[in-house]
Amino acid sequence: MSIESTASQYLLLFRNSGEWHRGLSPQELQEVTDQWMNWFNRLSEQGKVTAGHPLAPEGKIVSGKNGQFVVDGPFVESKETIGGYFLLNVESAEEAIAIARECPGLAYGVRVEVRPVAAKCSLRETDGAELAESHA
């Protein structure tokens, strides 16, 4: 059986071409910075975001059966990379999407990927404990 959880976690992944802010004027850059700051702060105060970080553009990609391939990537010049993330703590997918729609970067081509963080199992820990008790 599955039990509805009252809150869940979603990951917002901010996808953009590495160049998206290159075309903005200093004034626009500041406006987006202010907006993004206010957005993140507001969500933090409401307890809706539990973590968030920017991701530096440089990185490596490890692949191969034994992890023998380590190459540079992804490249910022490539079509889309993930520039940062928010880990949301919200009631529903709808709420996560509503928050994603507020992203100030959208106006400049940023895309926000909304992914539910998969539950550990279909029962939440505390509910599982109660169940275990009742079966004891």
């Binding site: 802010h21 290159r22 903005l24 200093p26 850059l29 500041q30 987006v32 910075t33 993004w36 700051m37 957005w39 993140f40 968030g52 970080h53 920017p54 520039g83 940062g84």
Partner: peptide, 15 residues
């Protein structure tokens, strides 16, 4: 321009 872009990237998270 790049320095300002870096500010945009990091200030929202770190203040």
């Amino acid at each position: 321009q790049e320095a300002l872009a870096k500010a945009l990237q990091t200030w929202p998270y770190y203040g």
